Amino acid sequence: MTWTAFGPMMIAACERFLPPEARIVDDDLAPRLLPPALRLLIRLPAARRALVAGSERRLPGIWASVLCRKRYADDQVRAALEAGVDQVVVLGAGLDTRACRLAGPKVRAFELDLPDNVARKRRRLTRAFGRVPEGLTLVPIDFDRGGLARTLATAGFRADRPAVFVWEAVTQYLSEDGVRATLASLSRAAPGSRLLFTYVRRDFLDGVNLYGGGRMRRDFVERRPVFRFGLLPEEVAGLLAPYGWAEAEQAGPAEYAARYLRPSRRDRGLSAPTEIERFVLATTAAAREG
């Protein structure tokens, strides 16, 4: 696992050193999944300040964006569970702890990722808890190769029951075919299901608007073309519709500031979230029509 896995969890872990009322994300498990050296590093206030400053140099607003997108996903998963959804599926889970933290004893949780990432996650969970938590199933998959529905069924997922699918910070690493293959598999989701996913703006990938992220674009688009897929906000509904999903909400800097930064008074200490990435909440089209 690289910075793409450790970085977001390190940001979440740093929140634990703030008073509860100032935390945007409250993830008590995040520090336990970090390597020992990182756990020790973030205990130092000077190191935490340096990490924030370094991330801001790389992409202004990324620290706040990661915190807010994680809180948004937490809030939406909680809302789905409170509405009676009893399956949580995390696509491209990395080191994320959401399934461990939010899925209660009556909820089945599935985390899917590349085989190497799943093996590392299994080792880290075993070190932290002695075993993979009960009710959580780790599932290896390559999203670009398809087969999601079959893979989930083999792992014990119930396609006839509603689920909440979380696809955070993944779509930009896939080909368009991989994104569409995943959506095609999710088109069989039961009524009442919900889909949460982030996307990177296509005008950023194309270099039309850098949103202050020129350095990130050079690193992830020009030098190492790992960011491959993007959307414009107005394209989201059209992407989802053929696969039976209806856009319910998009969340970006304005929503994050109103819901999380200003209430916690963190808007005074953090740069505004970046415009480069947005979160989408979608529901099954049948549920919207009903």
Rank of each mutant, 00 (worst) to 15 (best):
Y260K: 08
A12L: 15
L67I: 12
R58P: 12
I11T: 15
M216W: 05
Y173C: 03
N117W: 01
V166T: 01
A5H: 10
V89K: 02
R57Q: 15
R49E: 13
R228Q: 13
V90D: 14
F220W: 05
R48E: 10
R98D: 08
R43M: 06
A181N: 14
P35N: 13
V118Q: 08
T151S: 06
G104L: 04
T283A: 03
V85T: 04
S264I: 01
E275K: 07
K121A: 10
P162S: 09
S271V: 09
A153V: 00
P115H: 00
S193M: 00
P19L: 06
L102Q: 06
P263M: 07
Y211V: 03
D203M: 06
W3H: 09
A272E: 11
V200W: 00
P45K: 05
T171E: 01
L67G: 15
I141L: 12
A149D: 05
D267K: 13
K70R: 08
G244I: 03
P233N: 04
L205D: 13
M216E: 14
T97E: 04
V280W: 05
A93S: 13
E56Q: 12
V77G: 01
A79I: 07
V200P: 09
Q87H: 01
R188Q: 10
S271Y: 02
Y199P: 03
A163Q: 08
A257P: 04
G156T: 11
P233G: 11
A181Q: 15
R224P: 01
A119W: 03
L239P: 06
V66K: 03
E289V: 04
G207P: 06
F229T: 15
G61H: 04
A93W: 06
G135D: 12
Q172H: 05
L231H: 03
L231C: 00
L51G: 09
L40C: 05
L44C: 02
L41F: 12
P8Q: 05
L91C: 02
G192H: 01
D96C: 08
T4S: 09
P8W: 07
R127Y: 00
R49N: 15
P60V: 03
S187G: 13
E21S: 15
R127F: 01
A159R: 11
F227H: 14
E176W: 10
G84R: 00
